[in-house]
Structure formats: structure tokens, C-alpha cells
């Protein structure tokens, strides 16, 4: 039978920064083809397809908390796979190969991680589950 795709509303204008992305305007309604845990969602808008940041999308039927995982304050051990220098003051700056604890996996691809006594946002794209004790 037909595949029913979820519809989301674009909540702010989005300009694409690379070829594989999809540009959209505030108020556009897109269909979600695939949700990646790194916060990029593959979307369809009229006859165009491309990746959009999940942070720019909201479900048509109001806030969707059902897919959001609960925080895990014990921390889920991960290792950073790339250097990242925080741009906003709530982000962490870490080098490749650092062990961190993931506290909250957010759908927008920015996870709350703890490094020692410091907690902040870090891109999920640069994290890999380590499964080892720090």
C-alpha cells in the first residue's frame, strides 16, 4: 500500500548550505522521508527533496514529545570523533577522541553531554558510542 509520510511545518526560513540540503520558508509543510539521529531529516517539499535540520521543523499536530527520549543522568558513554569548537556559550568545545557521557539525546542532533563537571551541547554527528568505562 501507499507509504504515509509524516508532515511537519517549517518554523523559520531555512537557506541551504550544501547541495544535498532543502531550502524552505517559514510555514511551508514538508513530508519526512527519513529521520537521522544526527539531526538532519530527509524531507520532501512539493517536487524537491533534501536534508533539513530537525530544529527547523515541528509536527503539524503540535509539539511532539513522544519521540524525544528521556534524559539519562547516569550518562551514556561516547567518544568524540572530531574536534569541535563551541560557537554558542551553551556548547562544549572538545577534541577528537575525548570520552564524554551523553545525558540527553535530542532529536535536533545537539546532545547534552557531560565532560567531568562541565555540561553542554555537542553535535551528535561527532559522537560515537564507546561502550567502555571511562
Amino acid at each position: 500500500g501507499p507509504i504515509i509520510l509524516q508532515s511537519y511545518r517549517v518554523i523559520a526560513d531555512y537557506e541551504k548550505n550544501s547541495k544535498s540540503e532543502l531550502a524552505a520558508k517559514n510555514g511551508d509543510v514538508v513530508e519526512i522521508v527519513e529521520k537521522s539521529e544526527n539531526g538532519w531529516w530527509f524531507c520532501q517539499l512539493r517536487n524537491k527533496r533534501g536534508w533539513m535540520p530537525a530544529a527547523y521543523l515541528e509536527p503539524l499536530d503540535g509539539p511532539d514529545e513522544s519521540e524525544e527520549q528521556d534524559p539519562n543522568y547516569e550518562g551514556d558513554l561516547h567518544i568524540t570523533t572530531k574536534d569541535y569548537s563551541g560557537e554558542l556559550d551553551d556548547e562544549l568545545s572538545l577534541q577528537e577522541g575525548e570520552n564524554v557521557e551523553v545525558i540527553h539525546k535530542l532529536l535536533d542532533g545537539w546532545w547534552v553531554v557531560r565532560k567531568g563537571s562541565i555540561t553542554g551541547y555537542f553535535p551528535a554527528m561527532y559522537l560515537q558510542k564507546s561502550g567502555e568505562t571511562a
Binding site: I11, N17, S18, N38, W40, R49, Y56, L88, G109
Partner: peptide
């Protein structure tokens, strides 16, 4: 179709959305 996500992390939520969440 080849669907490879962008290589950079997605942008943080737009400023107006962050204000609403705070």
C-alpha cells in the same frame, strides 16, 4: 536515490525558537 546527509552538524534551533524554549 543516494541520500547522504550533509557532513556538518545541523544548525542549532533558530534564535526565536530557543527563546521560546528558555
Amino acid at each position: 536515490t543516494i541520500k547522504r546527509p550533509p557532513e556538518n552538524p545541523p544548525p542549532r534551533p533558530p534564535a526565536e525558537v530557543r527563546r521560546k524554549q528558555a
